[in-house]
């Protein structure tokens, strides 16, 4: 099944894809053996202004249905625990309580979700959406997600999303805004992205030079992961 990008699950699938890629394995032989070959992908400018309603239909559609199918009694129950931020948002909507609840929740942006979400409402989230929103809450740092990839001698040893960007001190970082990462996953050339400064490489150019094919495969493999985009 296609994984959502960006997410932990996508990163794990990427790791498996790298480790199954014979061309990458051969081209990156020796990488990281006598230097720090680990990477952080810094995905900046995550569009946190995106509302729940604007997320892909696969995610937002089921949630909308869940909310719309709530009984009026359940809505009344939910609203007894509603945080003041949600009440304020509902105050800006038209209709009865149920309609205003649905409209207020769906028009909430990713960055505002923690303010309006509460445990009873969370139970209405479909599993996929719940998981992804939980990850965004955990891993978003000022609009940036830090994905850690440990590469060593032809293998990807570990992938993880960093809660604390300072937790690791990688040898290399590739930094760029979300839309350019999406371009890369859709087939853009990784070295062209770096030379054109769509993505910035932080690390030793002279170390990477002999591994041009590995760098290419690192990008191409990301492009071959079966994925769906959160934004």
């Amino acid at each position: 099944m296609a994984e959502w990008f960006p997410s932990r699950e996508w990163l794990h699938t990427y790791r498996a894809a790298l480790n199954n890629n014979e061309t990458y394995r051969e081209a990156s032989e020796g990488w990281g053996v006598d230097f720090d070959g680990d990477f952080v992908f810094e995905i900046t400018d995550i569009p946190t202004e995106t509302t729940i309603a604007d997320l892909p239909e696969d995610l937002s559609g089921e949630f909308r249905e869940n909310l719309e199918s709530l009984s009026d009694e359940h809505v009344d129950e939910l609203l007894t625990d509603a945080p003041s931020a949600l009440e304020e948002r509902m105050g800006e909507q038209d209709g009865d309580d149920h309609e205003r609840l649905v409209a207020a929740v769906l028009s909430t942006s990713i960055s505002d979700i923690p303010e309006v979400t509460f445990s009873a409402l969370r139970e209405e989230y479909p599993a996929d959406l719940d998981n992804l929103l939980d990850q965004l809450e955990q891993y978003l740092n000022d609009g940036t997600i830090y994905a850690y990839i440990d590469l060593y001698d032809g293998e990807c040893l570990e992938t993880t999303v960093l809660q604390d960007p300072e937790a690791r001190d990688p040898g290399f970082a590739i930094i760029g805004p979300y839309p350019h990462w999406k371009d890369l996953l859709e087939g853009a050339d990784v070295m062209e992205s770096i030379f054109s400064e769509d993505l910035e490489l932080d690390g030793s150019t002279t170390t990477i030079l002999p591994y041009s094919e590995a760098a290419q495969e690192l990008g191409d493999t990301a492009g071959r992961v079966d994925d769906r985009y959160l934004f």
């Binding site: 050339d189 062209e192 770096i194 054109s196 690390g203 030793s204 150019t205």
Partner: peptide
């Protein structure tokens, strides 16, 4: 810093050859 010097060269190559002239460059 040789690393940033070479990267600057790469940026210039992309800017002139790829973006301005539209040439098909094999970056590898």
């Amino acid at each position: 810093d040789i690393d940033s010097t070479l990267m600057r060269g790469g940026n210039l190559i992309d800017g002139m050859y790829n973006e301005t002239l539209g040439c098909d460059i094999d970056y590898m």
